[in-house]
Design a protein around this nucleic acid. Structure first.
Lengths: 207, 207
DNA sequence: TTAAATTAAACAAACGTTTAATTTTGTGCG
DNA sequence: CGCACAAAATTAAACGTTTGTTTAATTTAA
């Protein structure tokens, strides 16, 4: 499905509002108003409010695996080096799209909607396969330790970011992140480094 | 504010529904129906739907610090030993109350509501203070390494759990967690151990 | 007999979607 | 280029529901 400029505007506005006020908390009237269009256009273009959400998710979650596999494929670099870059990539991507992930998290644990987000889940599966192959190669090369719960590595990366994100009001105060710039810098440096160190420690040292 | 049995029933039902269908997705009519009361009783007892939520959060988030400090105070046990129990306590508590935390996560990053959750934030601050003192004592005893981002430890513990929780549909398939019992067991053992190992590695080994 | 608890009904407001009419745009032809 | 016609885009209005809250009357309990 190709999107014209007006449709892109709707998707963009809707994404912001859904994350800000929740899916149920955002009315099609508000979306229309913010996007400067008539309310009927949402049904006209996307069929319904729910389908607009589905469409949004599918189109936001593509291209990640390509970046991931690019890093993994660079076998002239050390395993730790690549691992650090994988972590940085995950954090960067999830931070950029944190609004859409908030919606997905909500809807995946929401019994009211029939949304399955099959695209999201299959994408996640493929990403895990790539990461698994990389880690197992590192284990075979005796760089990474033997017993690692590989499927739980990504929850530790993304979960750390998201718990910071969901409780940002708390951590902004703890770390004195008063401006948006200082917050961005914190995520790029301190938070990312923390997660990198954590993963390196976890998959390197035997207990 | 003391609660009679009927009020407790309302709070209990509302918590379940809010987490399941979201705050906006849950109508007072549904709460009333599930709790077996008249819709007017919600306003009668709590004032409004929003105040019911506030009340819910305050009453669910107490008592944790006591448990936390009890573990820390046992200075006959090793630092690693106590750290593992702290992690287990965090996971256990958060898992037990994951529904209320989902609501808080949502509302804290929701601009529509004016809810501040001051009780939640101050509680979190006190917990962090306790953890910080414990970690710093461990550093002084040369058991833990020097450079640790202490405020980010809790996001790593709870974030790992929550990312697993929010994507449970995915991990249920990955790990074959078909029954509620197997899922409970997984959280209690594999997931908890993964987080424990991760934190031990992180705060022990210098890079 | 007084206060608290409970009820059904009504309230206005907001919801997502559809309708039918109108305007804008695109295309083929002379 | 200019006209005619069809398709697409856009609009205001209306649709029937559902929303949270309040009212006023009634029942229950102290």
């Amino acid at each position: 499905m190709e999107l014209n400029d007006k449709q892109k505007e709707i998707v963009q506005v809707a994404e912001k509002l859904f994350a800000e006020y929740g899916f149920d908390g955002t009315s099609v009237r508000l979306i229309a108003k913010e996007a400067g269009i008539n309310i009927a256009m949402i049904s006209y273009y996307f069929g319904s409010k729910e389908k607009l959400l589905e469409h949004m998710v599918v189109h936001r979650m593509s291209g990640f695996k390509v970046n991931l596999d690019e890093i993994i494929a660079q076998d002239d670099r050390s395993y730790h080096d690549r691992l650090n870059e994988i972590v940085a990539l995950y954090v960067k991507r999830i931070h950029k799209n944190n609004r859409i992930y908030k919606i997905v998290h909500n809807e995946l644990t929401n019994n009211a909607r029939s949304l399955t987000f099959e695209h999201y889940l299959s994408q996640k599966k493929k990403n895990l396969d790539s990461v698994t192959k990389f880690i197992e190669a590192g284990q075979k090369a005796h760089v990474f330790k033997k017993h690692i719960e590989i499927p739980l590595l990504i929850p530790s990366i993304l979960g750390t970011y998201f718990h910071f994100h969901y409780n940002q009001r708390f951590y902004e105060e703890s770390y004195g992140l008063n401006t948006p710039e200082s917050k961005e810098l914190f995520i790029e440096t301190t938070l990312t480094k923390h997660i990198q160190k954590m993963l390196n420690a976890l998959i390197t040292y035997e207990d």
